[in-house]
Design a protein around this nucleic acid. Structure first.
Lengths: 197, 197
DNA sequence: AAAAAATTTTAGTATTGATAAACTCAACCG
DNA sequence: CGGTTGAGTTTATCAATACTAAAATTTTTT
């Protein structure tokens, strides 16, 4: 054909997200060197440097390993950066109702591009028992109101307003809302809390 | 190294989503042939056949062109299929509050994997004016209650309960909630309605 | 200023992403 | 029944590249 596919690809390079800088930003935000990522992905620092500078394109499987090493997802690296506001007036929060239990989730971040933590407020009804969790990362929770029975590994804490907890999420954990009122919990997590589609 | 990166890749093949069958299913659901997709993506039918059968791996840019041809996204093709229920009891719906206007969105689908349409019910407060939209696809809306002023291109319709509208979404459209009560609208769209992450 | 760390750059190549075309199979039609 | 057509599979091939190893350069640290 008169127009090579190579040229066709070049013509559509505009459509390829500029993931190089996004990868570099995330890597630096995590305090990692090219060598750190190279070891985690079984790729070389030279190649990763080229990927970050847009000189070379990784295969899909390499891209996924890079995303894994950076504790993020393909989707996060490829998507158009979402709008952010550092300052969130309390009456302008994005809110969601989650699940059959009608938990209310108030999103407070991201406050800037490349943020590594996800702040939110969660309202849970009396008696609600959260999912048992265990995954890589860390979390901080401050109880604004209500009462919680927080299970962390084989420890149990009764939390009242003003109490907080900060832990490694690789330890199994869950909590139950005590008493007759809903709990209001301020969370800052290293992984986004899953909100349905 | 004694373990080739190819083997390393093979070792992690379990981690690579099984997108081949997902691509084929979506292509067939859209009534497209390999030739149709080949023409849309500037790839060959032999290659696409191999991709769908997991024999060959497309580059990231080719993958994105395939996703485009299939009117879907990388994320949709790569993600673990979401749980689905054909039958949705009215008190078991997933709900979300959207935006500052506090629209309520009740998810009714997908009813099966590979579905091409997205059913939902949307509740909107009095006076709410929707975003002006214009994109590829089609939509059907049935007004359950309330009243709407629906703008489609340069046509305006006053919708009352029981009325419906079904149109090509490439025409510019938006609507406003009339009267003092909220509207309750049943929608079936060819594209997912955006819900904040 | 020197050393160390981090990154960039270069040369190289085994592998592959993708093609062209032959082949196979099922469905359809005269 | 044989020929044609549509759809998909398979094979041989190769230009391009995904990625490496190592040298060179830059930046940071001491």
């Amino acid at each position: 054909m008169t127009t090579s596919r190579r040229q066709a690809t070049q013509d559509t390079v505009q459509d390829t997200p500029n993931y190089g800088p996004v990868i570099r930003q995330r890597r630096k935000a995590l305090g990692m060197t090219l060598d750190d990522v190279a070891k985690a992905t079984d790729l070389t620092i030279g190649f990763l440097s080229q990927v970050e500078r847009g000189i070379s394109a990784p295969s899909l499987s390499s891209f996924m390993r890079i995303a894994g090493a950076l504790q993020t997802s393909l989707e996060e690296l490829l998507k158009v950066p979402e709008p952010y506001m550092e300052y969130v007036p309390k009456d302008s929060r994005q809110t969601y109702v989650l699940g059959k239990s009608k938990r209310l989730y108030e999103k407070l971040g991201p406050g800037f591009p490349g943020a590594l933590t996800y702040p939110c407020i969660i309202h849970r009804p009396p008696g609600h028992v959260s999912e048992h969790m265990q995954h890589e990362g860390e979390v901080f929770c401050y109880l604004l109101s209500g009462s919680l029975e927080y299970h962390l590994g084989n420890k149990v804490f009764i939390m009242t307003p003003g109490d907080s907890i900060h832990h490694d999420t690789s330890k199994p954990h869950f909590s139950k809302v005590l008493g007759d009122e809903e709990s209001v919990e301020l969370w800052v997590s290293s992984t986004p809390i899953k909100t349905p589609g």
